[in-house]
Amino acid sequence: MWRHIASNALTFFVVITFLLGGVILWGQSTYHAEGPLAEPICLRVPSGSNMRKVSLQLEKDGAVTHPALLRIGADYAEKTGQLKAGSWLIPEGASMGEIVDLVTRGGASTCGTEVVYRIGVTRSEVEVRELDPTTNRFVEIAEFTPGEGEVPAEFTRVRQAGDTRYRIAIAEGTTSWQIVEGLKSVDVMAGEVEEIPAEGMLAPDSYEVNEGASRVELLKKMQQAQEVLLAEAWQNRDEDLPIETPEDLLKLASIIEKETGVAEEREQVASVFVNRLNRGMRLQTDPTVIYGITEGKGVLGRGLRQSELRKETAWNTYVIDGLPKTPIANPGRASLKAAANPGETNFVFFVADGTGGHAFAETLEEHNANVARWRQIEAERANQ
């Protein structure tokens, strides 16, 4: 009898072990299998949340069918206590294992709302935008100019949310003074800037910042980025350039930046100034004259006077030979590259062509004809 009982017990144990092993294999397979999510979603994990709440929200959103299994898997991987607050983009068909990894990895939120502070040449703007998970593109929900009119309710709402991302976008061609002034209006940043950084040495780019970030530290980051870009452009420059130092390359790039209205023309614009330098001609470019008047502090807001074109300053390239005293703006990567590797042309003149670009010329006769066409376009526009 005891042998029979023992035999039955062993059989029962084998069956239970087999079933348990099957459940474990099923659980592992299901945990790592493609999930049911039909299209991407943005999962918001509030501060103080837990894995149970997250798993139930995922079930509600159609991202998982077994929330308890997700919690078991997270426990087994020792990730339950690593849940991070934020907004996380959950891709289509994400497995439970992939979702757990996404919500415990940390770092900046990968979706949700973002506030972009845009610092431009003529004005600064604030844009509030939200990522559309289905297209993975940001959609603008509000925009305003700091100090002008009422602040949109959407901006106030997202500022109070704990997972909003903040970004500072610096336009190419801004001056160091304009950047510092623009940063003063960025209300999520802290600290005073005692000294304006050297002109041309701040890399125009998009920089993500946290609330309370230091303005001084961000400026240092911009300067380090520009040093890298300048060194790269200088190292890869054409050997026969008529410039001797990286500082001169930066000056030339800043002029190209201010004179280029169409991105595709950068190398042609660069070729004009390089050809002029090679021939001993003065650069004769209006943006340098303007910088001599404003020294980069704001915009002139009017046309240049003949007296200003004739007045000697350290930047007026109608009067001085060669390059100006300093850069006249902060050039971007493309203008640095164009200065280092200009197009191969014989152009020494250019003038606006009415489309936002320029008409280029090799001779003064051709240039005068282009100027006449531009004057005609100006007159026609004035009469409209």
Rank of each mutant, 00 (worst) to 15 (best):
G62H: 07
R276A: 04
I16N: 04
T80V: 12
N330M: 03
A361S: 14
E257L: 10
V180W: 01
S29V: 11
R279D: 12
Q376K: 15
D101N: 12
L218C: 03
I90S: 07
E344S: 13
I99Y: 05
T245H: 09
T30R: 13
F12R: 05
L229Q: 13
A169I: 00
A231K: 10
G21M: 07
A329Y: 08
P324D: 09
V193D: 04
G27R: 02
T113Q: 08
L70P: 06
A33F: 04
V351S: 03
Q160K: 13
A231Y: 03
L69G: 07
A85Y: 11
Q284L: 10
E380L: 13
G322Q: 10
Q160S: 14
A361Y: 02
F144T: 00
Q268A: 12
D101I: 03
Q178M: 07
T294W: 05
Q376N: 14
A190W: 00
I16G: 00
V274Y: 09
G106A: 05
T104L: 04
Q268L: 14
D187W: 01
L102A: 11
E195S: 01
Q28N: 14
E239T: 15
L56Y: 14
F138R: 00
S47C: 02
N136H: 09
V180I: 03
T65V: 12
H358M: 01
G73Y: 08
F360P: 03
I255W: 09
L364V: 06
E308L: 04
T134I: 09
